[in-house]
């Protein structure tokens, strides 16, 4: 973290969203006998030890076999269960992509995919374990709802919502510590982007671990006389088209930031919408068309400018280009 970012941070409490995910899932299983879990050996990285101990008869470990894992999820749904299929996002999506397409999206089975440790959370392990393609891959599959929660409260909401929702869903979970970005009274809804900060000059749109960084960027911009709106684009699909188009109409441009490839993800989705309905200046922040190097997640975010400073610079560049 650089000095400016440090100055902004008031040492907030940090959370691993997997805790909210695991606790909520366990609570839901206690209330609803249909809730069950499928994992691919990844009991500890999905934080499912407690669930396994408490509900052993509703816990299936298929071993290291992701194609089978997603198919088993579809079968459990056929049999009337509501399976949560949990594994490292890099393997869950890439290894089982045809099963995600056919067994879930096309078949519309009521299966919830929980892609853990997504993005560059496994930074040091190298590109094999980075999951920066998953947003592009999942959002283009018809019928598949995609949510990228930003903090513990939103993670808990997304889990609860997924149980009410009938249909396949991909929940993209990070393991990077994040601070709370929502107020206690924040209401969540699928397809609705929480407005975390009002602003008139530029709109910053982010999801997951990038949301707090977008908020920090807005503070930096405020100090420079730039009023930045901040939207949490956690609902990747369906996207809040109304909020995006309103941002295009009422501010001078949009900066998107995601812990993913810059192509095909949040920036791509926003750009597609704007191109058809209200073209507006954009900057798309993400990983360019490269495999990321090795380093901690924080290092890699810094490396690719996925920081408050990076978002601030992109916003100023966008506004300057219009001056």
């Amino acid at each position: 973290m650089n000095t400016t970012d440090t100055a902004i941070a008031e040492k907030p409490k940090l959370f691993d969203c997997r805790d909210a995910y695991a606790q909520t899932l366990e609570a839901m299983a206690a209330e609803d006998p249909r809730v069950c879990v499928v994992v691919n050996d990844s009991v500890s990285s999905t934080k499912m030890k407690s669930f396994q101990t408490r509900f052993p008869e509703r816990f299936v470990n298929v071993g290291i076999a992701e194609q089978n894992m997603v198919g088993v999820g579809a079968g459990l749904a056929n049999g009337g269960m509501t399976p949560y299929v949990c594994g490292a996002s890099c393997f869950l999506t890439a290894r089982a992509m045809e099963q995600v397409k056919v067994d879930l999206g096309y078949s519309k089975w009521n299966v919830k995919l929980c892609g853990m440790s997504s993005g560059m959370a496994y930074g040091e392990l190298g590109p094999t374990h980075h999951s920066i393609e998953d947003l592009a891959w999942t959002r283009i599959i018809p019928n598949l709802t995609v949510i990228v929660p930003a903090d513990p409260a939103e993670t808990a909401w997304a889990m609860r919502y997924s149980l009410q929702y009938e249909g396949p869903m991909f929940l993209r979970m990070s393991r990077m510590p994040v601070r709370e970005v929502h107020g206690a009274d924040q209401q969540f809804a699928l397809g609705k982007a929480p407005v975390l900060r009002q602003g008139n000059d530029v709109t910053l749109m982010a999801n997951g671990v990038m949301v707090s960084r977008a908020l920090d960027a807005a503070k930096l911009l405020e100090a420079e006389g730039v009023s930045a709106r901040v939207l949490n684009m956690s609902s990747m699909k369906p996207m809040d088209a109304e909020a995006v188009l309103d941002a295009a109409r009422t501010t001078r441009g949009i900066v998107t930031a995601e812990e993913a490839l810059a192509a095909g993800g949040l920036g791509g989705a926003v750009a597609e919408l704007l191109a058809l309905h209200h073209p507006a200046p954009m900057r798309i922040l993400g990983v360019p068309d490269v495999f990321a190097p090795t380093g901690s997640a924080e290092f890699l975010l810094e490396h690719f400018g996925l920081t408050a400073q990076g978002i601030r610079a992109a916003a100023l560049d966008l506004l300057g280009a219009k001056r």
Partner: peptide, 24 residues
């Protein structure tokens, strides 16, 4: 019961069905 065509999808789904019957 299942959308098939790409090969190797039916048996994992069948295993899931059999597990569901047991859980229930």
């Amino acid at each position: 019961e299942a959308n098939t065509g790409p090969l190797g999808h039916g048996l994992p789904i069948g295993v899931g069905c059999a597990l569901a019957a047991r859980m229930r």
